[in-house]
Amino acid sequence: MTEVLVVPETLNHDGFEALVSEWSAAQKSKLLIDARRVGWVSPYGVLGLLALGTASRKLSGERPWLELPDSREVASYLTRIRFFELAQDIYEMGAKVRKPRQRVSEALLEITPIRSHQDVHAVVDSVRERAALILGKRLGYPPPGVLHFSVILSEVCQNIVEHAGAEGWVAAQAYKWSPKIGREVVVIAVMDVGMGFRGSLAREHAQRYGDRWSDVTALEAAFFSGVSRYRDPGRGQGLKGIRKQVTRWNGIVTIRSGTAQIAVVPDWDDTEQVISRLPDFPGAQIQIVLPKYSPPTGEPRER
């Protein structure tokens, strides 16, 4: 029997969560993902579709069917950001795969699969010019900020290679974050459907936590205390560094893994800092939102 999951009209962070909720309640038989009514997608939402399809295929052994968005605008965006190129290995789709006419879209970073450290290098090498243009010119970040952005990208991508045990994807885009602050932001989305933070840290750390060991404690241990699955005492600094840098920039980081999500939230957003008992979903899903640059306290403001 084929079950139908309807993708919300707005496929952003909340839209993906709604979709996961539907997916979690489904029987994991043959799925039809109905995206026909989608009118807007964020990088997080797009990667969410890839992640959901991959997770479904892993469970049922069958490729789910994807009904493509009716909106030409959305379909065109999905083409430009390379969604279809990657989705053809994950979904059955009625339409032919559309390849972008030009290699480079207006996105800061098109969807890029992350399988190895070489992929991380490629992301950092390729994003620099566009990061300078978008972060520097449009969002006012100073030149060192553009390099810090590359460090953030590098570390979140390495998180997949080092901890997921599975392939993942990264994408980044600048757009108007109208519902929240009504101004332009840069959003980085990173997802995998691997073992998740709890799975990654369990062998080394679960015993110490005893009954308290959960997706929430695993996320907190990694994100706030820099705990890692490796015994090397130098490990675990990347996520801590990301948290500090994004906080300095007044941005948001959310990390969802398993049944939990933790977040670093500035005063302009109302995302809850810790959410537990979410519908279970494999791997880790990270979103970083960077607003227009405003100098941290004590740093001179440019005129």
Binding site: L147, S150, V151, S154, E155, Q158, Q237, G238
Partner: peptide, 9 residues
Amino acid sequence: GVIDYSCAD
């Protein structure tokens, strides 16, 4: 160009 935390370590 860029040095990240992992490489610095």
